[in-house]
Design a binder for these strands. Structure first.
Length: 643
RNA sequence: GCCGGCGUAGCUCAGCUGGUAGAGCACUUCACUCGUAAUGAAGGGGUCCCCGGUUCGAAUCCGGGCGCCGGCUCCA
């Protein structure tokens, strides 16, 4: 028999040869490195016989991403093995590899819950199984035999999995993998043996519902990660440490940007410096609004409950809305109000506040709108998941013919804005019609092709997420990648045919008849609060000069230089530099220390020498001591750094 | 909401098995007037998250609540 190799050459093998045989035939080094084999693109065990004429590719530790996926899946099995060693009677469920690691969900006997300290014991047992280099052995069994077997071993989750496989997919034969004492139901494939796991670490214990269903049993999930080398594991742990060091929840309050208080969980308090930052960001957004024909509006925070029934939020969103407790007795009826969770109904009321002509369209309404959503307590996370946030929202009302042009303008606005913030890598995702949706096929077809047309015309790489659109229309989402390589969804552009219907919006056409406008919801940054959180972590709190709330701090060497320091500060402020004087009776060293900790970009030391020369000695946070500069030149230098 | 962990001064944290609280930073005052990452001294500051229980006695043990942290699609 023969196998085709990736370079196109053919490899002659004996009858019934396996992936391992193929690797051995190529070379001893490959044979010892081999983990698995890709047969016609499908990942298989090395021990599986190869079909004649297949295209094969030997998977080694260098094969991305399959190799790590395989290794971590192996590690999950080893962890389950260790857990069963330590706590016999534990019920096992599933243990897949995930991005950055793996997990396994268990139900421990007698309501036992392992603590973080128990993780070390599990790690020790895992190390023993890895040391023993136990092979992964594949076996097959009929579904009924396997049910019988796992049933008698007291493994109800495995039984349920097989029963569902039988019922849903008509599976009759299942595969089983053994490593050491542990036999698991598993589709595979696996690496040759446990010894391939050169470095691993268990990270945390968490609760997770059986099959992600809140109505079902809560299992104990143990997370971990594994690598082919200690070095890679260390690098991974360093990345985690770096992410912790950049945590905006720590840096934000430390830098005087915002604070979070128990009195209002999930609703940030913006401190003076943070408010400056918000204003600066808003300024960049307003540049785009001005350039693209938007008009800015403000709509009320609290609106009649009836409006939310009309908008559909009552049906789809009620659980996450805040309602006013007091009933307001007005015009003889009890009225209840709700805090707005979205800005669109308000924008629609603005649209409907006067008769619109086709000559008014497209009408582009922008709003920095504060929305409140009663998110479940457990999901709150610093600025990244909050209960009140400001959307840089916009609603464009246009004719169907204008959709393409409007979407194009929105995409360009997003590009330009992200570039201003230094985010060059932008991922674009097109989400199409979901199962549950409203509107005609014709509307959806036209909307989706309009979005596609814009993406194609702008030569963008984009992914399609079928069925991930909103129920009222397809959308394009924009994800930015931060300095740590993490991806954040920010901008969005959604077509909507529902709101104009529900709010009976109309415009008078050139034909003198009434027509229904199309509505586009769009946000460039998404949530201002969340974007600040992303910026803090992206820059590790060291904002570029143009974004730094305080760009320069003037440090008088002794009290007698206070007057001159104030003059310098005034002159810089005149030139548009955000600057402060540190007039405390402290040593220069102390003032520099504090300014460095505050991550202030420029420190301007002024003493006798500078006062005589009408100058300042400049120290940059990034570059250190830059020497003495005359005040006039200084303002120019800072202005240049800030652009 | 659910599972696990945590909650001591503004912040970071000590406080062994129950005997009514401590450090560093920050803050206030005083002295020092200083040249590129922390000058020194003194002082103020606590409902040990809240409510209940056990106990002669609770920051500590038990129950409930609140808040914070890590998770809760990943289908053998």
């Amino acid at each position: 028999m023969t196998a085709k190799l990736p370079d196109g050459s053919a490899l002659e093998l004996g009858e019934g040869a396996t992936g391992a045989d193929a690797a051995a035939a190529i070379g001893p080094r490959l044979a010892s490195d081999a983990l698995a084999v890709k047969v016609d693109g499908e990942l298989c065990d090395l021990s599986a016989p190869l079909p004649d004429g297949a295209e094969i590719e030997i998977v080694t530790p260098g094969s991305e991403p399959e190799a790590l996926w395989l290794l971590r899946h192996d590690a999950a099995h080893v962890m389950a093995t260790a857990v069963l060693d330590l706590w016999p009677g534990t019920k096992v469920s599933i243990g897949p590899p995930i991005e950055d690691g793996f997990y396994y969900d268990f139900e421990f006997p007698d309501g036992f819950r392992p603590s973080e300290a128990d993780l070390e014991r599990i790690e020790e047992r895992m190390a023993a199984h890895i040391e023993a280099d136990e092979p992964f052995e594949r076996a097959e069994a009929s579904a009924d035999e396997a049910i019988e077997r796992f049933g008698s071993e007291g493994q109800p989750y495995k039984v349920e999995l097989i029963e569902d496989l039988k019922a849903d997919e008509g599976v009759e034969t299942v595969s089983l993998y053994r490593n050491g004492p542990f036999l698991d139901l598993c589709r595979g494939p696996h690496g040759p043996s446990t010894g391939r796991i050169k470095a691993f670490k268990l990270s945390s214990v968490a609760g997770a519902y059986w099959r992600g269903d809140e109505a079902r049993q809560m299992l104990t999930r143990i997370y971990g990660t594994a690598f082919f080398s200690k070095r890679e594991l260390e690098e991974h742990l360093e990345r985690l440490a770096e992410a912790r060091a950049r945590d905006h929840r720590r840096l934000g309050p430390e830098l005087g940007l915002f604070t979070l208080r128990p009195e209002s969980p999930g609703m940030p308090f913006w401190l003076p410096q943070g408010t400056v930052l918000l204003r600066l960001i808003e300024g960049r957004v307003r540049e785009q609004l001005a350039a693209r024909g938007y008009v800015e509006i403000k709509t009320p925070q609290v609106l009649d409950e009836e409006l939310w029934r009309r908008s559909g939020h009552w049906d789809n969103f009620r659980e996450e809305m805040f309602f006013t407790e007091a009933a307001h007795r007005e015009r003889g009826a009890d009225r209840r109000f709700a805090l707005k969770p979205m800005n669109c109904p308000g924008a629609c009321l603005v649209y409907a506040s006067e008769r619109r002509s086709y000559r008014d369209l497209p009408l582009r309404l922008a709003e920095f709108g504060l929305v409140s959503r009663n998110e479940r307590e457990g999901v709150l996370h610093g600025l990244l998941r909050v209960r009140a946030f400001t959307q840089d929202d916009g609603h464009v009302y246009c004719t169907p013919d204008q959709i393409t042009e409007e979407v194009e303008s929105i995409c360009e606005a997003i590009d330009e804005l992200y570039a201003r913030f230094g985010f060059e890598q932008v991922r674009v995702e097109l989400s199409t019609r979901p199962d549950k949706s409203i509107g005609s096929d014709e509307q959806w077809g036209r909307a989706e092709s309009a979005l596609r047309e814009v993406l194609e015309r702008q030569h963008r790489d984009y992914e399609v997420s079928p069925g991930e659109g909103t129920f009222y229309g397809p959308k394009i989402d924009f994800h930015i990648t931060d300095a740590l390589g993490r991806s954040w969804q920010c901008g969005t552009c959604q077509l909507d045919f529902q709101f104009p219907e529900r709010f009976d919006l109309a415009y008078q056409g050139a034909d003198n008849a009434e027509h229904r406008p199309v509505m586009i919801h769009r946000a460039l940054l998404g949530s201002m609060e969340r974007f600040v959180g992303i910026l803090i972590e992206h820059h590790a709190g060291r904002f570029p000069v143009w974004l730094a709330p305080v760009q320069a701090v003037v440090l008088p060497v002794a009290d007698r230089h206070g007057g001159y320091a104030a003059e310098v500060a005034a002159e810089l402020a005149e030139a548009g530099v955000r600057c402060r004087v540190d007039a405390r009776s402290e040593s220069v060293g102390k003032k520099i220390h504090d300014a460095e900790v505050a991550k202030c970009p420029y420190m301007l030391v002024v003493g006798d020498r500078e006062q005589d020369a009408r100058a300042a000695s400049v120290r940059s946070h990034e570059e250190g001591d830059l020497g003495q500069m005359a005040i006039g030149g200084l303002a120019a230098h800072l202005a240049a750094a800030a652009s």
